[in-house]
């Protein structure tokens, strides 16, 4: 475990908790894409099935359980507890356009043609695009609450730190996983436009709003 990986995980955890707290404290999920959150719940569920088959470390097991638990809690808050505040009309991204191609790709390109491995691959591919409904929603409404942008920044930072972690691991451990790396690059690229807006607007104290 190197420092980039650790801070990547912590950034990921921060993103998840920021979102949960935002919804809980404001008693509202306005501006949050429930579809993206369902996709993340699917991502964690299909990726961490190895909780049942192999033990890696206490850190690994506990982080996986926290990620899964928080993602289901978020989905519950959006679709049950604070459903009245859910902005379904603006959350109109067609997720089947993500799930179907990603599922097909996972069956075609994987490390091993076994159920667990295909589901893991599916989760890696799906994670790389799972934020799209959220970004689509922001582009539709033209704005995002500042706390939502902090969430997105932590999500993007997590993937960027993982990229540095993989460069590190390649040089010092000879480790690389092409599927994870390609998907991670795609995922990070999706955040670049947002990073730019975050730095030029949100960090200067302005609300994130897109030009009409």
């Amino acid at each position: 475990m190197n420092i980039f990986r650790l801070f990547g995980d912590l950034s990921h955890l921060a993103a998840i908790i920021i979102l949960l707290l935002k919804i809980w404290k404001s008693r509202s999920c306005a501006g949050i894409s429930g579809k993206s959150q369902i996709l993340f719940a699917i991502v964690f569920t299909t990726r961490y099935l190895d909780l049942l088959t192999s033990f890696i470390s206490l850190y690994n097991t506990s982080m996986k359980m926290i990620y899964i638990g928080c993602s289901y809690a978020t989905v519950y808050l959006i679709y049950a507890k604070f459903r009245a505040t859910y902005d379904g009309n603006h959350d109109s991204f067609r997720v089947e356009f993500l799930i179907v191609p990603v599922g097909g790709l996972a069956v075609l390109i994987n490390h091993d043609f076994s159920l667990l491995e295909i589901l893991w691959t599916f989760s890696i591919y799906l994670e790389s695009v799972a934020i799209l409904p959220q970004l689509f929603m922001i582009s539709k409404t033209g704005e995002a609450e500042t706390i939502t942008t902090h969430y997105l920044f932590c999500q993007g930072l997590y993937r960027a730190l993982y990229l540095i972690n993989w460069i590190w691991r390649f040089y010092f451990e000879g480790f690389f996983d092409m599927i994870a790396i390609v998907a991670g690059v795609v995922q990070t690229i999706l955040y670049c436009d947002f990073f730019y807006l975050y730095v030029t607007k949100v960090l200067k104290g302005k609300k994130l709003s897109l030009p009409a």
Binding site: S57, N60, H111, L116, W120, N165
Partner: peptide, 10 residues
């Protein structure tokens, strides 16, 4: 061909 190894990353 890569063998399936435990995934230590999250």
């Amino acid at each position: 061909e890569e063998e399936a190894k435990p995934k230590d990353e999250l």
